[in-house]
């Protein structure tokens, strides 16, 4: 069972491994990363794990969720590797394979997309309600309360109720994307 899981994961990570296979481990990315201080594994270490095929180690690390896509590493990489895209690709794999463990990141993005799919544009208030509900943490909303109050006082909160199905205006586009991406 564990082996089957590993094979599946290795397949998902293969294109990302290709993106960084020319990495020379110079560490310019780690030195340039504004979030490296908070990462258990710096970018350079993640690329090495990928090169070595240590797929479980990459997933377990999860440090790629700390990439804020500032593109400084991509800009400075002496090998010209698409490092920020590699970080995004890792987030995509996680969104499909291990969504629960990285709930705060994957749910945040998924709920954002849910609001876009409904209306074509994101409704910030609806999106945050969807996110906070999905996180199922009764304390989390309080973390956002001061910001909510500030936005409220500037009349920046949108009180249109979350529409269950919405007008589903983007369904066709989302479906077509899904079709094309899953085509053999």
């Amino acid at each position: 069972m564990k082996d089957a899981e590993n094979v599946q994961l290795a397949e998902a990570l293969a294109p990302i491994r290709d993106m960084v296979k020319a990495c020379i481990q110079c560490g310019t990315c780690s030195a340039s990363c504004p979030n490296a201080f908070a990462m258990a594994d710096t970018p350079r270490r993640l690329w090495r794990m990928l090169q070595a095929g240590e797929v479980q180690m990459v997933l377990k690390s999860g440090s790629f969720t700390l990439c804020s896509a500032c593109y400084t590493c991509t800009l400075r990489c002496p090998r010209g590797l698409p490092l920020t895209d590699a970080m995004s690709a890792l987030k995509q794999v996680v969104a499909h394979q291990d969504a629960l463990r990285f709930a705060s990141t994957t749910l945040f993005y998924r709920k954002f997309m849910e609001s876009v799919r409904r209306h074509g544009r994101v409704r910030e208030t609806e999106f945050m309600c969807l996110y906070l509900t999905a996180m199922k943490n009764p304390l989390l909303p309080f973390q956002f309360a001061p910001l909510g109050l500030k936005l409220f006082s500037r009349k920046k909160l949108d009180f249109r109720p979350p529409s269950k199905g919405g007008d589903a205006r983007m369904d066709a586009l989302f479906q077509k994307v899904h079709e094309l991406e899953n085509a053999p």
Binding site: S88, Q92, Y109, M113, V116, R121, M170
Partner: peptide
């Protein structure tokens, strides 16, 4: 009738979606 560009969210969900939303 412009629609969402995908923000930073689409790229973390699907590569094609992150291009299709702005391209639209």
């Amino acid at each position: 009738d412009w629609t969402c560009c995908g923000a930073s969210a689409a790229a973390s969900v699907s590569a094609l979606l992150s291009l299709a939303l702005p391209a639209r």
